[in-house]
Design a protein around this nucleic acid. Sequence first.
DNA 1: TTGTCTTTTGACAACGTTGTCACTTTGGTC
DNA 2: GACCAAAGTGACAACGTTGTCAAAAGACAA
Lengths: 330, 330
Amino acid sequence: MRDVAALAKVSIKTVSRVVNGEPGVSPALARRVLAASERLDYRHNMTASSLRRSDGRSATIGVVLEDVANPFASALHRSIEDVAVKRGVLVLAGSSDEDGERERRLVSAFASRRVDGLIIQPSSHDHSYLLTERRAGTAMVFVDRPPAFLDADTVLTDNTAGVKRGVRHLVEHGHRRIGYLGDMRTIATAADRHQGYVEELAEHEIKLDERLVRLDLRGIEKAEAATTELLTGPEPPTALFTGQNLITIGAFRALRRLGLHRKVALIGFDDILLADLLEPGITVIAQDPAAIGRTAADVLFRRLDGDRSASEQHIVLTRMITRGSGEIRP
Amino acid sequence: MRDVAALAKVSIKTVSRVVNGEPGVSPALARRVLAASERLDYRHNMTASSLRRSDGRSATIGVVLEDVANPFASALHRSIEDVAVKRGVLVLAGSSDEDGERERRLVSAFASRRVDGLIIQPSSHDHSYLLTERRAGTAMVFVDRPPAFLDADTVLTDNTAGVKRGVRHLVEHGHRRIGYLGDMRTIATAADRHQGYVEELAEHEIKLDERLVRLDLRGIEKAEAATTELLTGPEPPTALFTGQNLITIGAFRALRRLGLHRKVALIGFDDILLADLLEPGITVIAQDPAAIGRTAADVLFRRLDGDRSASEQHIVLTRMITRGSGEIRP
DNA sequence: TTGTCTTTTGACAACGTTGTCACTTTGGTC
DNA sequence: GACCAAAGTGACAACGTTGTCAAAAGACAA
């Protein structure tokens, strides 16, 4: 900037004004400054700028996801980015791998870089550590799962209602013995989904049979094994509800291997790419990650714009997509 | 930092030393400083630090992807992140959407934040604009597609060889009329893949029939329509090679709708989640995005560590995964 | 011409850190 | 007890910007 000022024969403050589009610079001078910065390949240094600025904004937000390569998480990421670019804000993204310690380290690294806001898909089970960041003025929004020990803006899927809808669909197709395969109970969404299963059965006065329930399944293989066990045991279920996309895939694999994919009904939580091309197509309760991400980013930027009202809890609805596997009758 | 220094009754330089783990601070003082920074919730400000530091490093890199939500791109992103976290480096990610102008804007935004390095999956067809950044000392590596008008480190898939392998597989299964469905020819990888098809046919002395070739297909729907047209026309192909994952999905949809999925062979470029559960399973030429990302990040960090040797071109091999669709005989 | 008001411009300090270098203390040797 | 080297510590400037405020220049009326 000093070099540009020297070449344009003005003070560096004038260059600063031109670069920031501040008013009160005569057109002639502005042109001279622009020409000089062009000639010297001048690049505005946002880090120095945000250091000096009164608001201290870095025009950067941090996003903590379970895994940036996970389809659900990357869809969130993309819709957050879309809102951010419109405001000239960049996105730092990181994967916590369902590990509270990694989540904290990421947040800490983001905080060191003075991000303006955070969007967190939580892995940790205690977010009181974020009080410090909040006090420092960092905006934050939680997505997909609620924060623990912290009152903050949250955008969630209506997990319980979604599962209930799916289980009701199975009941309406004549099923009474409905198996449930779920993810780690430590994950709030997984607990909510399991809860939906339990509630919906009760509403139809179907007695909960714990032998038809398998929880704490992580990954395709575990789900496949559990499904096989469930279906080859005594009194197997006539329908399955799977609480997460990898579990759905594992269950479908097992059904296929056992030749039961046209006999046992299956509804899964989360949509799966290609689910329509399988035989039968897989009926799912689809989340809307794009809507979740967009909402979260909107709330975050409203906070950054000064909205100090009480924290908001947004619920994004699910949608049932029927494709065949959920319509098999016992 | 000033407050911490005051509370610990030391100079701020001593606090700086403790925070950066520099030697030459007595254990007693270090403890006092640590206690004080704990008590005041002190957060090291990396932006100020990198401004002042002699190397000017921000411990941040920028990654430009076609779309952070695309499975191939997000796999790249994740493997880059894995290398970066080990060095305490954070990743800024952005989507260029196959638009050269967006790519430039992202790079410019990254440059303003003084990233140490860039990993770019290019959309633009002229990268001479990056000369300025390079001169400013920014390291850069290109992934998936080569840079244009710029000599730089590059990590590519062996597209031509991969396609040739797949086409040979079809020929070996008795096919002579092999259709080809490809992406935009402006994308370097798409051009290379088409080239592989042409070459392999020539090696088997099969005359290229342009009526069996459809290029510039973008997205599932276009691919589905083109496939339908190809198969319902006169003298339809007995096998198809699809040059990209969305095209493979579109082609498979068309085959299914026409009831030809067990009659016409299909091999696709890029692996697809669930491809093994379809009927028939889809034979693919799989890329290794994790290896590409890891290699790119390794090269980038070697450059940041001072490696000034000539630019490197890495080729990551593909792998054929046979699942049934590619083994159908005419 | 002078006085007043408005617009344009620039000098300087400050943002939160680290590099440089000089000073003080400590422990050991003669 | 004097001297020295090594270790520990701090004062100050500087990184590239922007906020503040004052000075200069221009516009206009009397």
